[in-house]
């Protein structure tokens, strides 16, 4: 989270939030307002620098009208899989 210390190793959460957001034609600020978070937080999530809580992940999925598994996952999203969705 950028606190200046290396965080403990934990299972990384991968996401394709930026891709889904852009597909919906939303800016970071618009998505942030809809999900009631700061616009920077969306940037942190998209870059994989912050893993959202379950509550926020579900909220983002609801705002983007998709399933949470389509945005977040424990394995990296590959391009082929994404294009089939």
């Amino acid at each position: 989270m950028g606190m200046g210390r290396k965080p403990k190793d934990e299972t990384p959460v991968h996401n394709r939030l930026e891709e889904v957001r852009e597909a919906r034609g939303l800016t970071r600020t618009e998505l942030a307002e809809a999900a009631d978070v700061h616009y920077q937080t969306i940037g942190y999530i998209e870059r994989g620098e912050y893993s959202p809580s379950l509550s926020l992940a579900l909220t983002l999925a609801r705002v983007l009208k998709t399933d949470v598994e389509d945005i977040f996952g424990l394995t990296p999203f590959n391009k082929k899989k994404e294009s089939n969705k």
Binding site: M1, G2, M3, V37, H38, T41, P52, S53, S55, L56
Partner: peptide, 11 residues
């Protein structure tokens, strides 16, 4: 604040 900012502040 949102949850990320609260976590930052608490940390």
């Amino acid at each position: 604040l949102d949850e990320r900012q609260i976590a930052l502040r608490n940390g």
